[in-house]
Amino acid sequence: MDTSQHNLHTLFEQLGLPADQESIETFIAKYAPLPQEVALPDATFWTAAQSSFLHQGIEDDSDWAEVIDELDALLRH
């Protein structure tokens, strides 16, 4: 069982994206605001694998769900 703490840095690593603070901030600035009618996993900037991971994390209410929601909120502002 995975008992590690998930945060934005580990989520970005899991998604295969640069995970340092500056890269995360740049990503959010580039893609925000995400339109309300677009679900986070359906955004056009994800690869198929990234989208699948995000969908699965939300659907399964996995350990990743909370940090996925955090990223969603950051992209909506």
Rank of each mutant, 00 (worst) to 15 (best):
M1A: 12
D2Q: 09
T3D: 12
S4W: 05
Q5L: 14
H6E: 08
H6D: 05
H9I: 10
L11D: 00
L11I: 05
L11R: 01
L11T: 01
F12E: 04
E13Y: 04
L15Q: 03
G16Q: 08
P18A: 14
P18W: 06
A19I: 02
A19W: 02
D20Q: 13
Q21F: 15
Q21D: 14
Q21H: 14
E22Q: 11
E22M: 13
T26Y: 05
F27V: 02
F27T: 00
I28C: 02
I28T: 03
A29H: 09
A29G: 04
K30W: 04
K30V: 04
Y31H: 15
P33Q: 13
L34E: 00
L34A: 02
P35L: 11
Q36A: 15
Q36K: 15
A39T: 09
L40V: 08
P41V: 06
D42Q: 15
A43Q: 05
A43E: 03
F45C: 05
A49F: 15
A49I: 15
A49S: 15
A49T: 15
Q50D: 12
Q50S: 10
H55T: 07
Q56M: 12
G57R: 00
S62D: 14
W64A: 02
A65F: 02
A65R: 08
E66F: 06
E70W: 02
L71S: 01
D72F: 03
D72Q: 11
A73V: 08
L74S: 03
L74K: 11
R76A: 06
R76C: 06
R76L: 08
H77E: 04
H77G: 04
H77K: 06
